[in-house]
Amino acid sequence: MSKTVFLFCLAVSIFCASQRIPAAAEPLRVRMENFIVTPSTGPLVNVHVQNRSDRAVNAVLRVRWPEGWKGAPGEQTVSVGPNAMAKAAFTVEKAIDLAVNRYAVVVEARAGDVTVTRTQHVICATAPYLKPQVDGKLDDWKDAVPITFATASKATTVMTCWNRKQFCVAVRAEQLKGGAVQFSLAPEAGEKPGRYEFVVVAPEQDGPAKCFLLMRPGDDLKLAAQSRALEGLECGDVQAATARDGGAMCFEIAVPVKLVPELQPTPGRPFRFSLLVHEAGGLRDLGAVMNLWDDQRHPQSWSRWKGAAFGPTPPFDSNIEFGFSSSIH
């Protein structure tokens, strides 16, 4: 592992540890959603506030943006019922995109004499329009918006993109041999509840890989708890390939848009996505870098399958906010 990657992993590990929410300590908690298009294009972003008390409150929400940015409005008041959630939308009016794809934002909620402040490193979770060749080599993804996170000091980078025919996913997992990539995909609000869920298992040699379809919208969520064999779940319509690159394992996956028709990709449209990397020692969870509260881990959020590396603690929820965009340029 290079020194740069090591230092990055160390910093991310420290950052993730510092983001843990004290258990049942605060009556309010807040989270800013991901940016679903690049910040410089001036997106709207929601701030969630959860009232964990038994009394309704009026919460005043404020955002301190990164230096040089401008957002509006200055503050918003939302009514939040007892043990309920509310959200308010803020507009980014001026911003600069950063290649590191982490934006330090301070979110504050005040209700009566209680003030909660949270520093988040918000991610831009966007799938730009690209047409990569699905061969496991990620050199044609330079115009994507990578999200990098660390699990036990091992870096994983996830990218998404779309074109008229495909929704594509690329994963570069450092210090990995073999393994599998499982991902969840859903429209923001579909006619049927639920999600698409796929898993791609790395073959022994570089080249085409098999993809399996674990879940579709409308399926009974109880399926998620059954540790199913992958045989019989093959999804030949999905193109997938893997390639080893130094000590890293690269996955490249293209899901035909016609297989997930509810997505209707077009710039600005939101969708839901998350991803897990299964390896012998456990999971690498993209949700770990999405600023979710530590208890946002619904057991039915991911489908179990034979050979998977799920542990006793469920991964973070799979329906994380993402968006389609046009180009980073």
């Binding site: 077009t266 710039p267 600005g268």
Partner: peptide, 10 residues
């Protein structure tokens, strides 16, 4: 009009 606005339309 903005393509992003179009993307928000259900």
């Amino acid at each position: 009009n903005c393509g992003g606005r179009k993307g928000k339309l259900k």
